[in-house]
Design a protein around this nucleic acid. Structure first.
Lengths: 190, 190, 190, 190
DNA sequence: TATGAATGAGTATTCATTCAT
DNA sequence: AATGAATGAATACTCATTCAT
């Protein structure tokens, strides 16, 4: 018998769901798992969110961008920092986009990933790219960021898993510079 | 004859399972789905493979490499071709590694992906890289390939989804050259 | 003022419950449905009535008779009018007895229907019947009335659903006369 | 662990469902109840019938008519015999049409009742009726039969519950004769 | 050996009801 | 006194798996 605090319970459910969905994917997570983690009865999920799907949607709707402001030439460096070094423990230690791939059997999820990738990565990089095939190059750079996130957390390849920001910096500068057609910094202050 | 049928049925089950697991992920696929696609009784899956999990393992054990032989400087180009342009219809149109991410809720699967990425991508690229942090740079390049595969098929971002090999070639040459520290070709003959 | 509100809320709950129970039956109605219709919290049902069952009982306890006074020979005509033409919108458009059949899975309900049929129909008709098997004939006539109510509203057979009092009058006079052993009128003034 | 006999199991489930649905109505019956009565696992209901609803539909689709052949003037008598004296123990002791009223919260069920009443009762009676409002009179007579079924089994009014065919015969002859406009017999041989 | 009947634990979801605030 | 948060048992239905024939 929990404290009767609607907002607190809702928050606990969201917290638990975020972690489970990230770690085990949508299909691999049961509403009982979530409720169990949150220490409340599973019925409350339906009371507060309507359905398992709506709970999932609510979670995937507000993925933190975490790119803050800063100089243009450090944008890619900030993205790398966000993908690789930000504290994603609430999402099971992975960037939420990477975690969502686990649920990409569902077209809805793919659609959400697409929106997220396009609006917060591709679009921002496109504005920096010089030359004609700016969109393609922005996507290729976004692909690299996504790939880094995956190899780092899902696959956990040895070198990337142990690398620090400084180790990555020169390569970030080189590849970003190449793809965007202008000099980019490999480190950021934020 | 009898032996032939048994093998044929086994093969049909593998074929159906490959497609289903790729498209819907491990959790999203039921043994009845697979058996239905193969046109046989679900019981045979247990007879032939022991369990759903063992069937899955058998499938993920033999991912085709498809990198063939060819000049060293075209290796990355061949990898891009494999990830992006090879005919993966048997895996639902995605590179099997990308498809497997859908089942990465299970540690076993992550382990398999890791092995696959390391042995057929990182190791091969590492041999080409000059300089001291060769492994890291090989992983960063592998990350790019994986990322490209994901953005192309799972996320389906507009520019990458529509790009041809020629569009990618110059960027492949540039990034691969950057990361490996030696000139690489953006196209391959194969 | 406070007392007034309490009574008003109680009345709204009864009103909503009457309609729901009539239309969807006891099992098909949830306390949340009722509370929602009444615009109040479901908890009040338990506060005011004790349980869903007790609320149902309270409703089925006071079925309006609506037979008014009038000449004996018009009694059957008045009953027909009541069953078929009275305004039962508060009960979902059906005579409450007919609606209760929807909840006749529960022996309690059957018991209530029995009481109602016996006291307000059979008994009254029995008093008019001549001859020895008066009770049986009164029941047979009651059965007719109940059957008419069902075919008219539940089953909605075409002719009966569209018939007016005048269309029924001659047959009412004939059948009632037959079963009661004395001339009866097919129309009533009320 | 039952005998592995598809048809036998299917039949047991149908038998159990028939009884439960009749006695407790659609909403008051759970698939576990049915499976429990049949002594098999509830999953088989879905295997064999697809859903609870489809099982219900299959049962209500084949209500035995039981009116056999015989002289025209005994048709009503045969109907009364069928409604009141036939052995409906498989339907919980009530005529299936009467039992279905218990599930009449669902429009589908009402539709089925309508079809059944119209095709096997109203239509047959209509053919016998003389005069212009034949359909209405046929429906009025059908209403009587339905009402008798209800008062006899659901409501269980004392006189009707104890009456035999002979007690009813004269009244059947009288009312049927009145409504159909031609002499009818109150008894039948079948 | 192979078919498919049977199982029971699992799924998301709804329900009447209780009880803290 | 009254609101609404919490509960847990029940619902229809699906699943991987077993086992009789």
């Amino acid at each position: 018998m929990r404290k009767r605090d609607r907002e607190a319970t809702r928050a606990r459910l969201l917290e638990a769901a975020r972690l489970r969905f990230a770690r085990e994917g949508y299909d691999g997570t049961s509403v009982r798992d979530i409720a169990g983690d949150a220490g409340v009865d599973a019925g409350l999920i339906f009371r507060y969110f309507g359905s398992k799907k709506q709970l999932f949607d609510e979670i995937t709707a507000d993925i933190p961008a975490d790119l803050l402001d800063g100089p243009e030439e450090e944008l890619v460096a900030r993205m790398v920092r966000s993908v690789v070094f930000a504290d994603w423990t609430r999402y099971g230690g992975e960037h939420p986009l990477v975690a969502m791939l686990r649920s990409s059997a569902h077209e809805d999820t793919r659609q959400r990933i697409r929106e997220e990738v396009c609006t917060t990565y591709v679009r921002a990089l496109e504005d920096l790219a010089e030359g004609d095939d700016a969109e393609l190059r922005a996507e290729l750079l976004s692909a690299w960021l996504v790939g880094i996130g995956i190899l780092r957390s899902v696959v956990a390849t040895p070198a990337l898993a142990g690398a620090g920001l400084d180790d990555l910096a020169p390569h970030v500068a080189a590849v970003a510079g190449d793809l965007l057609g202008r000099p980019m910094s490999g480190t950021s202050d934020a």
